[in-house]
Design a protein around this nucleic acid. Structure first.
Length: 936
RNA sequence: AGGCCUGUGGCGGAAUUGGCAGACGCAGCGGACUUAAAAUCCGCAGAGUUCACCCUCAUCCGGGUUCAAGUCCCGGCGGGCCUACCA
């Protein structure tokens, strides 16, 4: 509770005063352009300064506004920004809005207000809340992804990908026109959808286009997609959790659909390799690397009579002799072939395929992974044993990974073992344990070992260790033409179409034959039409809402902006009605900040080169929930633009840091059920459920409406002010940790700010108070504080930096009984330096006192205060003396004393002599500056 | 099931490279000021024993390495996050 000011403390720092000070300086800073970061070429740009680009993850402005979790990362970047400016850097610290996407659309559908309106008010609210925290953003660079001037370039980048393919020899993106020209020149054979081959010159334009689509980095491909009928859209694999949509938790079904895709898999190796170039948390790099999922192994072909080759991917080609059956995914082409052949198994097969297709991932999960499957009724030849082995279908084999077919080695793979046991298929041991333990046959052994029972007339790997056996097997399958070594990635191509209204339109149209044509770059942006009815069409088949904009959809090539050399201007065309996913705008926003108003380019290369420098964004702070999705997508776009000569660093974000989550308290009954914070009462440090009187325990939980433990910045600012909120969030603990919000603790930092105020201002009169003479102890501590705060900011340890500021203020605080205030506190010069180090944390308080004590200019442009290294250490230090490892005494030694000097001081010490009682230590360990250990 | 992270007072946390465990803050206790209270200022404060000296025990539990372990190693237990039939 903020006390009401009494007459004798009219000038106390309280919530009212904080509000007055903060809003006044915020207005001043904004009006004077104090936070503008000049670009190279601007009149006030100083080229002598080094650059520093610090970025917060693009916020998605939700209708609910900020909660106290948001300002945690933003306060951290703000502190660093202000510190770096004080250290003489040109700092780029921008803010903007990731404003397209599903939540805005859903919110709009719920409220019946157009997403453009709800999004704009959410943005305005977010901006107001951020500005009320006094963050040093260069607001002149602000933009939103929904601005046509921005999404024009999102579309432009997509077109660049559309016009490119990945050249596997030079390992980079190249213009697709060059590939087309080469194919045309060679009149190469192209493979059609039905598998037949035809010369380029003899193929239709549609066939040619479809062939090139097989290379484009942004391409139209038929994919089994994750269809969510409730949301009315398809979702990326990453947007699905446990078979349900990440947003809303609705069931998701698989469905084949022609959709725009990104060939991110072409970049799998580079995305993996370049993780070594960035300074990112190990956990995040590990997650990306697991997501990319590189595995080395071999591709092997098994012959199926009448069908041809059934190709599998395996990481254990050394177990080929143990492959006693094969399994294909229900979507595998061989299944359709078998059905087309008729036969006894046809009906059962079709039934199984239909059943497994309709089964959502949720069901698969619910059935606790009990393996299901059915024999396909055909056999394949194991190329090593020449045995005919049965082919089965099972949905534990995924069409999207490898080739959609596996060779099953039940003896050495747990999944295959489970399946073989269930369906009574043969199990053959081909790897013996290294330790000689006998094979029991009771479970699969997937460890490496010694090959056995792996011999035929043409090859034997018996007695070889797994690694060597694998190598020999790969050599054999390569020379015999059965297969080859292969690297497989778990990463799949990125589904980029959404059946939504609130997203970037694709700059693409289709003619009546179904050929697609790009909109010319000069005709961008393709504006999102204003739609009155944007509600999703809930159906079993995807129906994008943009289809309702019939005037917009049905147009001519000329009207849509297709180059007339591609298509006659009056050719009737239909626009693409899918839109880009929410991720699109956040893939390159950090580039736009370098030059946000540029109408001719996405960013001027000179400006981009300056701010991005050699390694990209210097520090990127945001939540770990984006460890895979956003960060992988943005890296992919960046590498694509790098190949195309549009950006100049291999990676976008040099250093990454994740702030932890701010949690809250909730209460738990004895049975483990949760109670809202207003359902309990506290009594002498214990909690009881109000309704029943039963004891409850305090637990840490996520902030949620239902637990009534959500805290918003607005309410904290109203009670204490923004400086207190900032200080509290930073003092809670390490930035990276998840920490519980404890309203009671805020008073601690508020009282600290009141002591700072009282140090400089007489609470009764409002007069400025300064010490007349320098207290040498305080002076030394001030130097130490300046040094420590700088060090702590550099390592993002704001909590300990604040602790040292508090210690300094506590030392300088005047006792109540001090009659003459000039006898204590800080001198004006000391106060000036202290405000310099306080400013990054509590900028409003620092700015106000800066003015009050009569300093000129603004603390926001003042250089970081200097410290004297000789002041950091005292003349003498107290060292603990251990005797046989236990601390028994302490001695004072000169700070610079070396080991032998310390030893003689210690041995001469009365207390030590008494403790030794005449014994001579067997060994003396002296660690200067630390401690002494005497072993007796 | 696997991978990564984590466990320190009543609570949030500090201890940056193995070197005085518990900085700083909250809550608590005592004192000064006050008619009184609040606020402020000054102190106390890991646990234990007969005190404030001393001593003993203390960083989830059990081992180990070391002159020295919250920190390093091995095993176990608890909490969190991610992945989840990836062949």
């Amino acid at each position: 509770m903020t006390p009401v000011a009494e007459p004798q403390t009219l000038h106390r720092y309280d919530a009212t005063r904080a509000d007055e000070i903060e809003t006044r300086w915020q207005r001043h800073w904004l009006a004077s352009g104090a936070f503008r970061a000049p670009n190279p070429g601007d009149a006030d740009f100083d080229p002598a300064k080094p650059k520093y680009y610090i970025l917060d993850m693009f916020p998605y402005p939700s209708g609910a506004g900020l909660h106290v979790g948001h300002p945690e990362g933003y306060t951290a970047t703000d502190i660093i920004t202000r510190y770096k400016v004080a250290c003489g850097f040109n700092v780029l610290h921008p803010m903007g809005w990731d404003a397209f996407g599903l939540p805005a659309e859903q919110y709009a559908v719920q409220t019946g207000v157009h997403p453009a309106i709800t999004t704009q008010s959410a943005i305005d609210n977010f901006r107001r809340q951020l500005q009320r925290l006094g963050f040093r953003y260069d607001w002149s660079r602000e933009f939103a992804t929904i601005d046509p001037d921005y999404y024009r370039w999102t579309q432009w980048i997509w077109l660049r990908a559309y016009h490119s393919y990945y050249d596997t020899t030079s390992m980079r993106a190249m213009p697709i026109a060059e590939l087309g020209a080469r194919i045309e020149h060679d009149d190469a054979l192209i493979t059609l959808v039905d598998g037949s081959q035809v010369r380029w010159s003899a193929s239709t334009p549609l066939q040619q286009q479809s062939h090139l689509d097989g290379f484009r980095l942004a391409y139209l491909g038929e994919q089994t997609v994750n269809w969510c009928p409730v949301l009315g859209t398809v979702l990326a694999n990453e947007e699905i959790i446990d078979g349900r949509s990440e947003r809303g938790g609705h069931p998701v079904f698989r469905l084949p659909l022609r959709q725009w895709m990104f060939r991110i898999t072409a970049y799998a190796q580079r995305l993996l390799d370049d993780l070594t170039l960035v300074q990112w948390p190990d956990s995040t790099r590990a997650m990306q690397s697991q997501w990319i999922g590189r595995s080395e192994g071999a591709e092997l072909r098994f012959e199926v009579e009448g069908f041809g080759d059934l190709t599998v991917f395996t990481t254990r080609p050394d177990t080929l002799f143990g492959a006693t059956y094969m399994v294909v995914a229900p979507e595998h082409p061989i299944v359709e072939w078998v059905c087309s052949q008729g036969g006894a198994h046809r009906n059962a097969t079709e039934e199984y395929v239909a059943w497994s297709r309709n089964r959502s991932d949720v069901d698969r999960q619910a059935e606790s992974r009990e393996k299901t499957g059915i024999a396909l009724g055909v056999t394949a030849i194991n190329p090593a044993t020449r045995e005919a082995i049965p082919v089965w279908i099972a949905d534990y084999v995924l069409m999207a990974y490898g080739t959609g077919a596996i060779m099953a080695v039940p003896a050495h793979d747990e999944r295959d073992f489970e399946f073989a046991t269930r369906f009574d298929l043969p199990i053959r041991q081909v790897v013996a344990a290294k330790d000689g333990c006998a094979w029991t046959g009771e479970r699969a052994t997937s460890d490496e070992g010694i090959a056995c029972h792996s011999s035929s007339t043409s090859i034997s790997i018996d007695g070889m260790e797994t690694a060597a056996a694998t190598q020999k097997m790969i050599a054999w399958i390569t020379t015999t033409g059965i297969g080859c070594a292969r690297v497989n990635f778990r990463l799949r191509d990125w589904l980029f179409s959404r059946q939504r209204y609130w997203g970037e339109p694709f700059p693409i149209v289709f003619d009546q034959q179904g050929m697609h044509y790009p909109v010319a770059e000069t005709a961008l942006p393709v504006r999102l039409p204003a739609l009155v009815d944007y509600t999703p069409i809930e159906s079993d088949h995807p129906m994008p809402p943009l289809g309702k904009a019939t005037q917009w959809v049905t147009t001519t090539a000329g009207e849509a902006g297709v180059d007339s050399s591609l298509l006659d201007a009056d050719t009737p065309v239909r626009r693409e009605i899918n839109t880009m996913p929410g991720w699109a705008g956040s893939c390159w926003y950090y580039l736009r900040y370098c030059d946000p108003k540029n109408a001719a380019r996405f960013a001027d290369p000179t400006l981009q080169k300056y701010w991005m420098g050699e390694r990209g964004v210097d520090l990127y702070i945001g939540g770990a929930e984006h460890a895979v999705l956003h960060l992988l997508y943005a890296r992919f776009w960046h590498k694509l633009l790098f190949d195309l000569g549009e950006v100049f660093t291999p990676e976008p974000f040099a250093k990454l840091f994740h702030q932890g989550m701010i949690t809250s308290f909730a209460f738990e009954r004895a049975d483990g059920s949760l109670l809202a914070t207003d359902a309990v009462r506290e009594e002498s440090g214990k909690w009881f459920e109000i309704a029943t009187g039963e004891p409850a325990t305090r637990v840490i939980a996520k902030m949620s409406k239902s637990l009534k433990n959500v805290v918003t910045p607005d309410e904290v600012i109203a009670e204490y002010g923004a400086d207190t909120l900032r200080l509290y969030e930073m003092s809670m603990g390490p930035l990276a940790d998840s920490k519980p919000w404890n309203t009671r603790d805020i008073a601690g930092v508020f009282r600290f700010l009141q002591r700072v105020w009282r140090l400089a201002i007489d609470e009764r009169t409002g007069e400025v108070l300064t010490a007349r003479i320098v207290d040498p102890g305080v002076e030394r501590q001030l130097h130490r504080t300046i040094h420590k705060v700088a060090q702590d900011i550099e390592r993002l340890a704001f909590n300990t930096a604040i602790a040292s500021l508090i210690e300094l203020v506590n030392s300088a605080t005047r006792p109540t009984e001090m009659k003459d205030p000039s006898q204590g506190g800080l001198t004006q010069d000391q106060m000036r330096r202290f405000l310099g180090v306080l400013a990054p944390f509590a900028p409003h308080m620092a700015e106000e006192l800066w003015m009050q004590i009569g300093e000129t200019g603004s603390v926001t442009t003042a250089p970081w205060p200097a410290f004297d290294a000789s002041q950091l250490v005292a003349d003498t230090i107290e060292l603990p003396v251990q005797i046989s490892g236990k601390i028994r005494a302490r001695v004072l030694v000169p700070t610079g004393a070396d080991a032998s000097a310390i030893e003689s001081i210690v041995l001469a010490d009365m207390k030590v002599q008494e403790l030794l009682a005449g014994r001579a230590p067997k060994k003396v360990i002296v660690v200067p500056q630390r401690m002494v250990n005497l072993l007796v």
